[in-house]
Design a protein around this nucleic acid. Structure first.
Length: 621
DNA sequence: TTAGGGTTAG
């Protein structure tokens, strides 16, 4: 065909080649691409690298491109150049093995990688260090051999690669011997070290780096946030602002995550206001972070307001909002939102369904939960994963349907992990099935032997049955394995400051006043019928002695602090790291009535809204 | 062409 092209058409093309290039660069859909591709072939340019490169850019890099098409196109080219390979290597969807074979095809055609080859190639070698490391080492030596070590992009990518495979030692050596280090080199180290958990080392580098930009600041702030060092994140954020850097969307996202972690509503609100005031675009990611902050700081209503105001809702925004309703025990709202999502044509994913199931579990909606689980298996393309089974076990187990929960486990296509079995163990504890609980519990502490919560659950089960010798044995096991029980901590924000309490702790400057308030608080609720619930206490000691630690649980200290420092109309908001114990739950209900206060507690799993002597979880948690 | 942000059961 190409041979039969009339010469006039060819010269016409040469004349118009600039226009053709422009058109090829503005392809917006696959149908357009097909049109242009056939036009290119008809014009006899099927083997032209310049035209092919433009087609490949769309096929490999555009979200609605077609990677297999791109790979076929490349194979058909008689004389490809490195640019074409580099373009394909940039494709996000390219599997690592395909990247490796592209490189070897390149080399077999005697095409040398250039400085644009390594940056996209290196990350494709990273996800599984054990299998791809030899390949990575080959890449590294090739990079050196070809002299790209002094190319900043190649060098920084190499550094990033080693850090992302959690090989900080190698990264440090590359860094130390680097011929030149720019702000990206330093920032890559900071971000990578943080991701490996080496935040303090990252901070040392941050403090000595010669030049910082907003990315560097945020990499360090995000590093603190990732490991839960929220106070350090706040400190650095303040310094950043003092040094005159403005809040951008990345810093906003990191700081919102810090607020979410702490349950610091006031600070979170402040960031949200600044996003609006500074005209920072509320894209789908940032919107989700804002919604999550409001949900996890106890303001579902505000979260929903933000959610409703979004022009475009990404899947994460839907998921986040459904999950928000779930943890607040608003199961019906979560289900309603899920239905709305389907009506609006958004496609749910595994997390959506997980959140819906979780909503059913938190609200005790057993038949709805069963319905959505079946729906998932039969009507959606989403395959239930471990976590979905865990959620179902939790839902059924909590409702006392222990045999049904067990059946779900028996019929799972994979073997249950500690999380799934742990859900059943929890249910056994609630419903006092010592026999099943013991069997499951023993397995769980072997599967998840470092998690103190598992031991505590098993010990609680024994304690409930009065089997004190077994309680002691579990404690011995914990000692032998050096597993420490996590200390309960409660946090309450006051005037932008975060106050943290631990059980029986005296380190707060107002400790005396707080303890006096606790005593007064307890005296008043005693008159309203408060009887300490010692079930959660693990010692086999007299009832009288058992009560003491309960009185000064971190949560009660935080509530007392809240009563001391807020007006009578204000809601007291508390965030804690463990689950609310039975005794604190009862006490909080009574306090909400006797002191006429709304108290919102976020525990490890969900929210409790205490009001007028009742809790939003309807004692179902 | 390299470095920074999102949802996930118990």
């Amino acid at each position: 065909m190409a041979l039969l092209q009339p010469t006039s058409a060819i010269s016409n093309l040469n004349h118009n080649s600039h226009a053709l290039r422009r058109r090829l660069d503005s392809i917006a859909s696959m149908s357009e691409l097909r049109q242009y591709h056939s036009q290119v072939v008809r014009l006899g340019l099927g083997g032209n690298n310049d035209a092919a490169g433009r087609l490949l850019k769309f096929l490999a890099l555009h979200p609605s491109g077609d990677l297999p098409y791109a790979l076929r196109l490349l194979r058909l080219l008689p004389d490809p150049d490195p640019f074409l390979f580099n373009t394909l290597l940039r494709a996000r969807a390219l599997p690592p093995s395909a990247a490796a074979s592209l490189l070897s095809r390149m080399l077999s055609l005697s095409l040398l990688p250039n400085r644009f080859t390594f940056p996209p190639l290196l990350p494709s070698a990273s996800p599984s260090p054990s299998s791809s490391l030899p390949f990575a080492l080959q890449l590294h030596s090739l990079l050196l051999k070809l002299g790209f070590f002094s190319d900043p992009f190649s060098q920084n990518s190499l550094l990033c690669f080693y850090l992302s495979c959690a090989l900080p030692d190698v990264a440090r050596r590359v860094f130390a011997t680097a011929p030149r280090r720019d702000v990206v080199t330093w920032t890559t180290m900071i971000s990578g070290l943080s991701r490996s958990g080496l935040v303090d080392e990252a901070r040392e580098m941050f403090d000595v780096m010669p030049e910082r930009n907003s990315v560097s600041w945020n990499a360090m702030i995000a590093g603190y946030v990732q490991v839960g060092r929220f106070a350090d994140a706040f400190e650095l954020f303040d310094r950043m602002r003092r040094e005159g850097l403005r809040l951008d969307k990345f810093a906003a996202a990191s700081m919102l995550a810090a607020c979410t972690g702490l349950g610091a509503l006031d600070q979170g609100r402040w960031i949200h206001e600044n996003i609006t005031r500074n005209g920072i675009e509320l894209d789908s990611k940032l919107a989700t972070t804002v919604i999550d902050m409001y949900c996890k700081c106890g303001c579902v209503e505000k979260a929903y307001e933000v959610f409703e105001g979004l022009e475009k809702r990404g899947i994460s925004s839907w998921n986040c909002m459904i999950g928000g309703f779930a943890v607040h025990g608003r199961g019906e709202d979560a289900i309603e939102l899920f239905k709305q999502m389907e009506r609006e044509g958004a496609t749910p994913d595994g997390i959506t369904l997980l959140n819906v199931l979780s909503a059913c579990a938190h609200s005790g909606l057993v038949s709805e939960g069963r319905y959505y689980f079946n729906y998932m298996i039969q009507a959606s393309n989403i395959e239930p994963k471990m976590e979905h089974y865990g959620c179902m076990v939790d839902l059924l187990g909590r409702a006392g349907l222990l045999e049904d929960a067990k059946k779900v486990i028996d019929e799972m296509p994979m073997s249950p992990d500690a999380g799934v079995l742990g859900a059943l163990l929890g249910a056994c504890r609630i419903h006092g099935d010592v026999e099943m609980g013991e069997r499951i519990g023993r397995t769980v502490i072997e599967l998840d032997s470092k998690n103190s919560g598992r031991y505590v659950l098993l010990a609680n089960l024994y304690a409930k049955a009065g089997r004190w010798e077994d309680v002691a044995e579990v404690r011995r096991l914990m000692n032998d394995r050096r597993v420490r029980k996590e200390a309960g901590r409660s946090v309450i924000e006051m005037n932008g400051e975060v106050n943290e309490f631990i059980c029986g702790g005296m380190s707060h400057p107002q400790a005396r006043e707080i303890y006096e308030t606790v005593d007064e608080m307890l005296n008043r609720i005693r008159l309203a019928g408060y009887v300490p619930d010692t079930e959660g206490v693990l010692h086999d000691i007299g009832e009288q002695e058992k009560e003491n630690p309960l009185y000064y649980h971190s949560e009660k200290l935080a509530i007392a602090f809240g009563l001391l420092h807020t007006k009578s109309s204000e809601t007291i908001r508390i965030t804690k790291n463990l689950r609310v114990c039975r005794d604190c739950h009862e006490a909080s209900k009574l306090i909400s009535r006797v002191f006429d206060r709304e108290i919102i507690v976020r525990d490890r799993n969900r929210f409790h809204h205490f009001k007028d002597g009742k809790c939003s979880c309807r004692d179902y948690w």
